[in-house]
């Protein structure tokens, strides 16, 4: 393994998605994160009902992420060959679950506004 540089990393991602789409995706991810921070600060804590729904949505995000990755790469679950494959696939599932749950939480908070009665 040779030296690794952030600029090379960014260059490959820009090539993979196109410069505009890549940075737009980074922007959207940053916006959702900021919105998450915003609702947490605005509500002085987490709404547990919203958090529960967000948690319940996690498997959906996980399965959707895995299904999407397999579809994009024209692969099937039977193609998973070694430990690194399982680790990567689990990583995809975890990211899908986490990302989707945050999205669900933020969406609920922004749509409903204000605090849940059970907010802590």
């Amino acid at each position: 393994m040779e030296e690794f540089s952030l600029s090379t990393f960014l260059a490959v991602f820009e090539e993979m998605f196109g410069t505009w789409l890549f940075w737009a995706m980074v922007g959207v991810a940053a916006l959702i994160t900021l919105a998450y921070a915003f609702v947490l600060i605005r509500d002085h804590g987490m709404g547990m009902r919203r958090f529960l729904l967000a948690q319940l949505s996690m498997p959906v995000g996980a399965v959707a992420a895995v299904a999407f990755v397999l579809w994009v790469t024209r692969s099937r679950v039977v193609d998973i060959g070694g430990p690194i494959d399982w680790i990567v696939l689990l990583g995809v599932a975890v990211l899908g679950a986490g990302g989707f749950s945050i999205l669900v939480y933020v969406a609920q908070s922004l749509i409903r506004g204000g605090r849940d009665s059970d907010a802590t």
């Binding site: 690794f4 540089s5 991602f13 995706m25 999407f68 990583g91």
Partner: peptide, 28 residues
């Protein structure tokens, strides 16, 4: 070029694959 949500999921894939492939790149 479809939904951003879809694209961001592909981003996860990119992180997995591109990250590994990139680690083998030569320095710029």
């Amino acid at each position: 070029d479809t939904a951003v949500a879809a694209a961001s999921r592909r981003g996860f894939l990119g992180l997995a694959a591109g990250g590994l492939a990139l680690a083998a790149t030569t320095p710029g």
